[in-house]
Design a protein around this nucleic acid. Structure first.
Lengths: 349, 349
DNA sequence: TCGCCTGGGGTAAGCGCTTGCTGGGGAGGA
DNA sequence: TCCTCCCCAGCAAGCGCTTACCCCAGGCGA
C-alpha cells in the first residue's frame, strides 16, 4: 500500500541496500546512482518508515521532553528551546538527521512522569530531558532514578534541566537557593524586616530550595523570628498567590514586602494587595522569580530573579543530542540574576 | 541486551505469541497463563519495543500536536488538554492502550510545519492535531492540504483545532469572526466610535477573521470610515501590542477604545496606554480575545471573548483517538463568549 | 601481463513483534 | 464409547529497514 524502500529501489534500478545508503548518507555511493535514487524518492514521494528503521537500526529519532505544565510559560520557554535545537542545521536537505522532540505534560503528577518515562523507553527514545523541579517523595525519587538508569543503560541519554542531579544523567541545575537568597537580601538591603513568603507546593525541590535561600538570607540578617508564620504554601499559579496574600495579611497586616516563589504567583500577590487597597511598592514591595516575559511589563514592573530559561533549554537540547560536551562531573549550575525593578522599594517610614 | 518478548516467553514457559496476546489483550488467554506471563513481565521489567510492534502491527501509538508557539498559553492550554485525553481511562493497568502525544512547536513557520508533518508521517503517527490559525499563503495551504490527504490516506487521523476546515480532516473551527464582531459591538453599544485595532500577523487566518469581524461590526454601525487607518498589524505578543498602541495614538490621539487581536497583545496595549498617562477604561477602553487565565485578574480585569480552549483541545484529542463521533460534515464550530469586565466602559463625555 | 587493491553495489540475515493458521486435548452429545 | 467442537496455545511468515559480508570490475605497480 504505502511506498516502500523496495519500490524506490525498483524504480531506481538498484537494490534496497543502495537506497538505504543513499538516504542515510553514511556509505559511498556513486554520484549518478545517488541522483537516480533521489529522483525516484521524489517521484514516488517516498517517506521512510520510522518504526522499521528504528527497529533495524536499534535507535530512534525521538527525544522526550517532560514538563510539569506546558500552559506555564516557564516550561513553554524551556521546551521550545529544546525543540529548536533539534532541527537540522541550515543547509541540510532535511533528509534524515532531524530528531523529533516530544513534549510530554506530566501535570506535576509523579505517576504520569513515570508513565511517560516508560512510554519513551518503549519508543527507544534517543534522549529524555526532564525539566523543572522534582517531586521529593523518596519512593518516587527512587523510581525515577531507577528508570533513568535503565534508560541510560539502554542507550538513551538522560538530561535534567532545572532539577537536582541524579546518577546516570547530565544535569543543568538552577541556582534556586542562591538566587532566592540574593533576592531576599535585596529586600533586606532596602530596609524590609517583615517579609512574607508565598511558597510553591511543599514536595518540590524547587520550592524547598527557594524557600531555603529566602530563610538563609533572613537568618543572616537576624530577621527570621517569624519566618515560619510568614510563609504560606500554594501552587505555582496566580490564584494561589492571591489567596496566600490574603492569608499573609490576615496573619500580619504590617508586613512591608512579599516574596513569591515565582512570577506567576507574584502576579496574584499584586492583584490581592491591590484589592486590599495596598499600593505597590509604596505600601508593600513584591518580588518574583524566573523573570518570565510578562514580568518586565507588569504594573509595576516586577522585581525578580532572571533565570536564562531559553539558554538553559537550548543547552539541554544540545546535551541531549550529544552535540555539546558534558560539563565537568556531569553537572552545571545555571545562575540567577537579580532584576531590580519597580515593584520593590524601601519600606515607608 | 534488552529484555525481549522471547525472554518473557521463556520465563513464563509459553510462546512469544502468547505473551504478545496477553499484553495486547485482544485474544482469549487462560487466566493462569495470563498471570504467569504478567509475573514474568514484572520480574524481568520488560518494556515493549515500540518500533518493533509498530512495524509488525502497522500502527503506532504516537499522536502529533502541532502548535505555533508553546510558550504561549493559548497553545499550551490546547496542547495540554489534547495530551490529557491520551491517558488510559482510570482502572486500566497502564499496559498498552495509552498514546503518546507529541507536541511540536512550529514557531509559526510554514516550513517547520510541513517538516513536522513529514516527521509524523514517517513515524506513522496514529493521528495529527493541527492547532491555531493557518498561514494563508496559497502554496503553503496547498502543501498542507496535500500532506493532510496523504496522512489521511495512510490511516492517520487528521484533526484541526482552531483553523479553517480542509478536506480529509475533522475540524474544530473557532468562531473568530463572529466573536470579534460581538466584541466590537459591545464597544459600540457602550458608545465608542473611534476604535483602534491591533491585529496579528497579516497572513494568518485567525488574524484575518478577527479583523473582518471587527470591521463588520463597525460597518454595521456606520463607524468604519477610518477603520483602515486605525488598524495596526503586529505579532501576537506583548511587545507588538505596546508598539502598535503608540502608533495608534500617534495616528489618532482621540480614540476612545482599542481592540486587540488577543489577550497577550491587549496586555501590551494596556502597558503602553498607562505609560502614556492614559487611564483604562476612563480614557481608553481595551478589549482582548481568548480569555487566557491571566486576563481575568489583569488590572483592570480585561474584557475579552472567551474561547473554551481546554474543552476544544480535549475534544480534538478525543476526535484524534476516534473516541468521539465526527461532527456533521466533519466540521464543528466553537463559539466565543463575551466576558465583559472592567477594562471597557462608556467613553467620557 | 598478472596479482592485488579499492571503490561501488548486491545479498541476505536479522531487528522484535503481530497474527493467520494449525493443532492438541478436554467436554459434551450421540 | 466415540466423535465433534471449542478453547488455548504454538508455529511461522512476515512488517520495512539496516548492515555485515561478499563480489565484481577497473586501475595500478611490478
Amino acid at each position: 500500500m504505502a511506498v516502500t524502500l523496495a519500490d524506490v529501489a525498483a524504480r531506481a534500478r538498484v537494490s534496497a541496500a543502495t537506497v538505504s545508503r543513499v538516504l542515510s548518507g553514511n556509505y559511498p555511493v556513486a554520484e549518478s546512482t545517488r541522483n537516480r535514487v533521489l529522483r525516484a524518492v521524489d517521484e514516488l514521494e517516498y517517506v521512510v518508515n520510522g518504526p522499521a528503521s528504528a527497529l533495524a537500526a536499534a535507535t530512534s529519532d525521538l527525544v522526550g521532553v517532560l514538563v510539569n505544565d506546558i500552559a506555564d510559560p516557564f516550561f513553554g520557554i524551556i521546551a521550545g528551546a529544546v525543540q529548536a535545537e533539534m532541527v537540522t542545521p541550515a543547509g541540510e536537505s532535511g533528509r534524515g538527521g532531524e530528531k523529533l522532540a516530544v513534549i510530554c505534560n506530566t501535570g506535576g503528577s509523579p505517576e504520569r512522569e513515570l508513565n511517560y518515562l516508560t512510554l519513551l523507553q518503549r519508543q527507544r527514545a534517543a534522549a529524555v530531558v526532564l525539566t523543572g523541579g522534582a517531586v521529593e517523595h523518596p519512593d518516587h525519587a527512587a523510581a525515577v532514578a531507577t528508570k533513568a538508569s535503565r534508560l541510560a543503560a539502554s542507550g538513551t541519554r538522560v538530561v535534567l534541566c532545572g532539577r537536582p542531579p541524579i546518577e546516570d544523567a547530565t544535569t543543568l541545575t538552577f541556582d534556586n537557593r542562591g538566587g532566592a537568597r540574593r533576592l531576599t537580601e535585596h529586600l533586606l538591603t532596602l530596609g524590609h524586616r517583615r517579609v512574607g513568603y508565598v511558597a510553591g507546593p511543599a514536595e518540590r525541590t524547587t520550592t524547598r530550595h527557594r524557600l531555603e535561600g529566602h530563610r538563609a538570607a533572613l537568618a543572616a540578617a537576624g530577621a527570621d523570628q517569624e519566618a515560619e508564620r510568614l510563609t504560606v504554601h500554594g501552587l505555582y499559579d496566580r490564584a494561589s498567590g492571591y489567596d496566600a496574600t490574603l492569608e499573609l495579611l490576615r496573619r500580619d497586616r504590617s508586613l512591608t514586602a512579599i516574596v513569591a516563589a515565582n512570577d506567576t504567583i507574584a502576579l496574584g500577590v499584586c492583584a490581592a494587595l491591590r484589592d486590599q487597597g495596598l499600593r505597590i511598592p509604596e505600601d508593600v514591595s513584591v518580588a518574583g522569580f524566573d523573570d518570565l516575559p510578562f514580568s518586565a511589563d507588569a504594573v509595576p514592573a516586577l522585581t525578580t530573579m532572571r533565570l536564562p530559561l531559553h539558554e538553559a533549554g537550548a543547552r539541554a537540547g544540545r546535551l541531549a543530542l550529544g552535540r555539546e560536551p558534558q560539563p565537568p562531573g556531569g553537572v552545571a549550575m545555571v545562575r540567577a540574576e537579580l532584576m531590580a525593578r519597580a515593584s520593590t522599594a524601601p519600606p515607608r517610614g
